[in-house]
Simulated assay, not measured.
Amino acid sequence: MGFFMARNLAKNRPQSVTPLPPTLVWNRTKSRAEDLVKEVGDDKAQIAKDPEEVARECDIIFTNLANDDVVKEIYLRFAQALEVGTTIVYIQESLCHMRDPQDSPSLKPKIFVETSTVYPTLAGELDTLIAAHNARLVMAPVFGAPPAADAAQLLVVMAGDYRSKKEVANILIPAVGRKVIDLGGNLEKAPTFKLIGNSLILGSLEILAESFTLGEKSGISAELVQTLVKDLMPTPILVNYGEKMVHDLFDGSKGFAIDGGIKDATHIRRLTTELNSPMPALDTAHQHLLTARALHAAARDRGEQVFETLDWSSLVAGTRVAAGLDGFDSGKVCVPRHVSYASA
């Protein structure tokens, strides 16, 4: 996801009278950043040596990271880099007094844009980390699978300072996304909204998985049930994830990896607990995700795993196993000889 977003930002930068410098990119796996620069050219993107360089050199910093712990780790590094930068600027201004410090480009407020899916209360922690360093935070999680990110069709949710949101929106639309939903100034609202959205997706996956499994158990193929999905509920999410389940296309490198799905489900369940708002479908989906991951780990131990990592649509393995079927191989479905119905 982050790769496509960064690539599209680099390729479709806002128009400016003064030519903009290349987009500065950083990834834990350096080869990914190298691939991006190779694709767009070094006139549009350059590789930062570390997150600290990004924080010091850039006016607007976008982050898209795996989980809450990684997000907080990176923002701690940002804050430490800004602390050093602030000290240097103070010393320089004290020595020269050649211009009003407020006119110094180095004192222009930076904007940090967090696009990951995180627990809402983390927003306040991140804001506290950077607010002391003349920086503003915009929480801007995105909806859309990697293909949507590739096509710059993401749905962006924003919360934070109004002027900062406007500036960020002008950069992201249409370079990265198709639409912005503004949740106001409360930073926690955007990640909360993202979790609500993911609960809709994950709950739908659970219903799909259960329906396909019921079809297989009753002697009606999952392929036939999928045709019903296409006719009755032809939404891209249901159709696309239905295809993955029906054809055992559980490659997490081409979709949403199961660890991310479990993280999101855990966040949603925590939120429902705190707000006394039960979501039993999410409880079940969470258990089926754990079952799928456990089955995959056991297959890896035997050297029999098909994919390096699973897509979260593999939760269908949980419903299949619960029904006595093979978790990852729909070809092993045992079709009953007959189905009888009794009526009073």
Rank of each mutant, 00 (worst) to 15 (best):
A151G: 09
K189N: 14
I181L: 15
A149D: 08
A149K: 08
A135F: 07
A66V: 07
V156W: 01
F143K: 03
Q153A: 10
G177H: 01
K189R: 14
S116Y: 10
D127A: 14
D150L: 10
D161R: 05
D103I: 10
N134V: 09
G160V: 05
L172R: 00
T192E: 09
S106D: 03
E188L: 05
A79C: 13
N170I: 03
H133L: 13
H133C: 12
K189P: 00
V118G: 05
A131Y: 06
G177W: 01
A123D: 05
Y75N: 14
K189F: 08
V70M: 03
K166V: 13
R163T: 15
E167V: 15
P147M: 05
R163F: 09
L65T: 01
T128K: 15
T87H: 12
V84S: 11
R77G: 03
A132S: 15
G184E: 08
D161V: 05
T87V: 02
D182E: 08
K108P: 04
P147D: 03
S116Q: 10
E73D: 11
G144P: 00
I91V: 11
V168D: 06
E83Y: 04
D69K: 15
P174Q: 01
D127R: 05
A132H: 15
M158Y: 05
Q92W: 10
L183E: 11
A175F: 01
